[in-house]
Amino acid sequence: MEQIEYVRPRSLTEAYDTLSNGRRSVFLAGGTDIVVQLREGRRSADQVVDLKHVPELMALRFLDDGTLEIGAATCCAEIYEHPEVQAKLPALIDSASLIGGIQIQGRASLGGNVCNASPAADSAPTLIALGAQLLIGSKRGTRELPVEEFFRGPGQNALEQDEILVQIRIPPQPARSGAFFNRFIPRNEMDIAVANAAARITLSADGSTIEDARVAIGAVAPTPLLATSAAEALRGKAPERETFEAAGQAAAALANPIDDMRGGIAQRRHLARVLTIRALENAYNRAKEGI
């Protein structure tokens, strides 16, 4: 690794200031992507800005209105060990508990996962399905962006040079809704997804129809995708196998996968369909518990 400075801002203001000192910066949250990329020469920088001592970036709490505020640098283990998150947002636990192994989960953050902008990022479909908003800050002020608009291509995100992802905000989930995330990897753990998918279903008061849905797929296109056509195939329909199959087809039709050592094009398209169906079935089971 080339020579590099390490800086540890203690506040957002300090963090923004370090970005205007003329040095080329990279951010360090859990380091599970960036430390390896720096050492392997895939990224270079003059300074590493450690975000873990900025209080806003280490937050994990429910606001009075039920919104979950996740500091961008909070690690996966903090999230899946949180009893209230376990009870209210099981789909988030699905994702946080399978990013890497235990050693990775004690460091890896959701902020790092989305900022790294891998098409296969395992938190992305879940955050999209849950309707998460990203709070982005800079010296100029703050802005919010729906997470599905954040990804711009492999390794590319919507942040400007002077911006930091401060928090991920998950709004209170609709009544009678349930969400689920799943992925396919060739091993049982510790691998990058060949494909992944998440879904949220909201049921009508009597549980007989799907009032609303959000479906998201990953690793089958240059960015994780919100599959609006899959949601359309679900709205107003009965929550049954045929409906889920149709939504799976719609999701697979959006897939524009690559062929690489992890999987082929046809396999990935097939997985987008199957994983969407499984996400829907399991999301439905979770939604039923709320009726």
């Binding site: 450690d50 050693q103 004690g106």
Partner: peptide, 14 residues
């Protein structure tokens, strides 16, 4: 917490 020390920068542990 259990970590991979190869993915932690030395000054981080200060």
């Amino acid at each position: 917490r259990l970590v991979n020390s190869c993915c932690v920068l030395a000054p981080e542990v200060d």
